[in-house]
Amino acid sequence: MSLAKLPQFLGSVNPLLKIALSIALTACAFALKSVWANVLLVGVLLVLTFVSVRVEAKSVVGVGAFLLIFTALTGTLSGDWGYAGLGAARLLVLILPALLLPATTAPGDLVRAFQAVRLPPFLVLSLMLTWRFLPVIQQEAQRIIEANLLRGVDLARRPGLWFSGLFTPLIFRIVSYADDVTVGLETRGYDPESPRSTSQPLRWRPGDTLFALGAAALLIAVGGLEWTA
């Protein structure tokens, strides 16, 4: 598979598989104490991240600066630069899957994945609503912040006014949405207690097998390096 096709490939991988790998990688970040095992993981994750996610230069600079400061601080305080480098690598193993998974998984796919593992329908609904209305409410918050600016109030500089200027009107909007969304759901025939079909059921595809084998190989290699260290 060429690198150009990788983002598309990762996007089509079974979300449950990606979640499982993400959990395994986070566990690795906690457990691995070998420098080379961490370096291998960071290397693979960095390649996947840069190929699959459109990373902005300022984010790279920001994360890089944070890691440098972290390493310098840890090294200076502990006097052990090997430990400082290892800490930075483990942090990256913790951070990178957190970027990759959401960036390569559409909310709809994730909802289907949760449906496939028989998560209670009300939880699937809650997830779906949270996803759907998070940007809507963020937009509402943005408009309220702008309305404050239009009255000459810059909330960024006056956190003391956050409650009356932002949270109070925002909560009124959210409560109003909650009432309307319930009605909206009912007009669309939704019933949390009735069975629902799935237009695109989650299926195991050959690509998933490939991904699972690749992930297993990576984890075995990492385990080997940790063992020999």
Binding site: P107, M128, R132, G184, L185, R188
Partner: peptide, 11 residues
């Protein structure tokens, strides 16, 4: 409904 946003649930 008047505000169609509340009748949309996917992306």
């Amino acid at each position: 409904l008047q505000n169609v946003e509340v009748q949309i649930f996917t992306d």
